[in-house]
Amino acid sequence: MTAGPEARDLLLAELGGSLFASLPRSDQRRRGEAYLRGLLAARGRKSIRNIAALSGGPAAEQSLHHFVSSSTWDWEPVRRALAAYTARIAPPQAWVVRPMVIPKAGDNSVGVERRFCPVRGQVINAQQAVGVWAASDDFAVPVNWRLFLSESWLEDPLRRRQASIPDSVRAETLGECTVEAYVGMMRDWGLPVRPVVMDAREADALSALHRLRAAGVPVLARVGGSLRLAPAEPTLPGRGGEALPAHQIMGAARDLRRPVLWRDHDGRRSVHTSLTAAVRVGLPGRRPAPGEPVRRRDMLLLGLGDAAGRWPAELWLTDLLNVPPAALVRLSRLMGRVRRDFDEVADEVGIRDFAGRSFGGWHRHTTLASAAHAVRVLTRPGAAGADEEAECLGQAS
């Protein structure tokens, strides 16, 4: 993987051949390639009009609009090809599951409604989706998306018909949407099993964690301090089985804090020392679903902070019981890698720019924008392997 226009053209040609192999007609494949190149080259908002201006004007605009908004090609095989390509070229250290909020001015786009946005700290008019990212120290590429749809959309026949929402789409909680975004792609895509890193503070964390554990998925989840857990360490309060807030458990483990080294992923590669403490806990019990295996393994509650700040600054829950704290810290920092690549690349290639109202159109545009994101990050200057950093962190652990 090298930088520059020539490298980008080579990657486009190679990736395009894989992405569009499932499209049955040659004209569809040509339009897919034109749309992908437009996402990379068009200035400003990545509207269909701006993309079409690079490849033929009004006639191209009409054909590209049909190709994305109302064509019949299936986006799932394209995403599967993108995920397989990314896993081969830039093997992920983890799959990071991250929400995406898409502000909207009107109320016609599929899934749009008034919702609270934690980043802005206010209620806005927006769509909400969940993305799964193949993440490593140097790269983060979105490979799957799931659009969150509330009952107000799915139980309204007129809205469903106008947005062409398939009959198979059913209402789910945000936690269920988060889990299915990952589990759905891992069922038959043939992707490597890696830990799932996610922020479970906003979703229904317990339900999501129970479902992931039932599926045998290794998980590292950031959790809120109020999440109640059952301490399994004999030296901690609540050992008798009483569930306590996570921040209280970690506060009692203050004397277990140890320094750990980790590196930034922002190009400066500066090394930091943080304090960590880890204690074994159990999730509050629930009745397993019929046929679901009973899993009673403990989990690890990991606290992160520094000597000068409050303790703990972050709380993470994981079933990776035998992984050194330094490696867990490194995995948790992949959330930052995804956030930076989203801000610097995904938005630049128009991941949130689809202005149509249809369910299929949203998914097709987001799929192609994900491919454009992959091209951009895999050919940007300064992208290097992580062997040196892995060695450093391995020594620190």
Rank of each mutant, 00 (worst) to 15 (best):
A53G: 08
Q93P: 02
A90Q: 05
H65K: 10
W73D: 01
W95Y: 14
A87E: 06
Q93E: 14
I89H: 11
L64A: 03
A60F: 07
W73G: 04
T86F: 11
W73N: 01
R98E: 09
W73F: 02
W95P: 01
A83P: 02
A59T: 14
A52W: 08
R80N: 03
D74Y: 03
R88E: 05
F67R: 00
S71D: 14
A52N: 06
S63Q: 15
V97G: 04
E61K: 11
P91K: 10
H66V: 07
L64K: 09
V78T: 14
V97I: 14
R88G: 06
V96R: 05
A53Q: 13
L54M: 10
V96D: 03
L54Y: 06
G56Q: 09
V96M: 01
S63D: 12
V78G: 01
P91S: 02
W95E: 00
A84P: 10
G56T: 10
A83I: 00
A83E: 02
S69D: 13
E76W: 12
A90V: 11
V68T: 05
A59S: 14
S55K: 10
F67H: 14
D74E: 14
V96N: 01
V97E: 04
H65G: 13
W75R: 08
P77S: 05
Q62F: 08
A94R: 06
A52K: 09
G57S: 02
P92Y: 10
S69R: 14
W73H: 07
V96Q: 07
Q93W: 10
A59N: 13
I51V: 15
G57R: 09
L64V: 11
R98G: 01
R80E: 12
E76S: 09
I89P: 00
L64E: 05
S63F: 00
A60W: 04
S55Y: 15
V78D: 01
P58N: 09
E76L: 14
R80L: 06
T72P: 08
S70R: 15
A52D: 06
G56Y: 03
F67W: 05
P92F: 12
A94F: 08
V68C: 10
W73S: 05
P77E: 10
P58W: 12
Q93C: 08
R88Y: 01
F67Q: 02
G57E: 07
I89K: 14
A59Q: 15
P91H: 11
H65E: 09
Q62P: 00
F67E: 02
L64P: 08
I51L: 07
P92C: 09
A90E: 08
G56R: 13
T72G: 13
I89L: 15
V78A: 06
S71V: 05
S69P: 03
E61L: 12
W75V: 08
